Computed example of a mutant assay.
Amino acid sequence: MKYKRVLIKLSGEALAGEDKFGVNPDVTLKTAKQIKEIRANGVDVAIVVGGGNFFRGRTGGSIDRATADYMGMLATVMNALALQDSLLSIGCEAKVMTAIEIRDMAEGYSRRKALDYLKEGKVVIFGGGTGSPFFSTDTTAALRAAEMDAEVILMAKAIDAVYSADPKLDPSAVRYEHLTYMDIVEKDLKVMDLTAATLCKDNSIKLYVFALAEEGGLMKVINGENIGTLVE
């Protein structure tokens, strides 16, 4: 195995699949099976989920930014619970921990407890973002990766790699296999926000971007196959 402890960043849109909204049970189950496969091979797995399939925090209109971000945090908790249920249904132990207290649904986040769960072989799913508004789930992923001593953030997206532009809109877009965090800033690549990129850079955490839809994609990345873009 190339990696022993990973943090997987799952977008809400990825869990929605072609439905675009809500949770697609088939996609979620397929994702859970991939996660179980790498866990069965001895890889410690932590997960941060987004909430864009239900609600996006960054919005305008009559809802102020902080309130919108809190609503987005609740959306990530819904996705975390759905993923946990899929993992449990196939015999993979999983725990949801949230940065915002929802005692009847999930356990409050504790770094020490999360590390204990990872050592016990459980998959730990982090919902609720950082618990504070004005921070994206990319930043949450970088923060939790640093706290969990993860070697890499595996960013599962609807696209198979990082490109210089949207390949669906620009046929001449360049596909990158390797980048640095400075490249993200200088080329203005929309991989993750600058706060998250800086946190990863400062803590020497690698980022690997790949397509969630890739058959056996997670296992391929864990085995060191080049199917996406490595950022370090």
Rank of each mutant, 00 (worst) to 15 (best):
D85H: 10
T59Q: 14
T130I: 08
T198A: 11
E151K: 07
L230C: 04
G17T: 00
D138N: 01
R65Y: 09
P167F: 07
F134K: 15
D202W: 09
L189P: 04
G57F: 03
T130C: 11
L218G: 01
A75V: 07
L115C: 10
D166A: 10
E177N: 15
F135V: 00
V209Q: 02
M78Q: 05
V191E: 05
K113L: 09
A68T: 01
A68H: 04
R112K: 11
A145C: 11
D149S: 10
L154F: 13
T139P: 04
V27R: 15
E107R: 12
L207F: 02
V77A: 14
M1G: 12
L143N: 02
A14W: 11
M155L: 13
T98N: 11
V209R: 10
V48F: 00
L29A: 07
T140Y: 05
L118G: 03
V23R: 01
T76N: 08
T195R: 02
S62I: 01
E215D: 08
E107S: 07
V124T: 04
G108P: 13
A150Q: 09
A14V: 15
Y181C: 04
D138P: 09
C92M: 13
L83E: 07
L199N: 05
D19L: 13
M78L: 15
D166Q: 10
A32F: 13
L83D: 08
T198L: 09
S204G: 04
I153Y: 00
I35P: 12
A114M: 03
R5M: 00
S132P: 02
G216Q: 06
Y163T: 07
G51H: 05
T67I: 06
A165G: 06
D44S: 12
R58P: 15
I8D: 04
A75N: 06
G91V: 11
I63F: 15
A196V: 00
A196S: 03
L207R: 06
V209P: 10
V96Q: 06
V152C: 09
L83V: 14
R56P: 13
N53M: 02
L115H: 00
M97Y: 03
V162H: 12
G42V: 02
I8V: 12
E215W: 00
V23P: 01
T139Q: 04
D188A: 09
I227H: 05
A68M: 00
V49D: 01
E101P: 14
D149T: 04
A156K: 05
K36I: 10
T31D: 07
V191N: 01
C200P: 00
V209C: 11
R112A: 07
G91S: 10
L83F: 11
R5T: 04
A150R: 02
K190W: 06
E93R: 14
V174P: 05
V174I: 15
G129A: 12
I47E: 04
I227M: 12
A165L: 04
A32G: 01
A32P: 09
I100W: 12
L154G: 03
D138A: 03
V45G: 00
G60K: 05
I102T: 15
T59N: 12
C200R: 01
T67W: 08
E214M: 08
E13T: 03
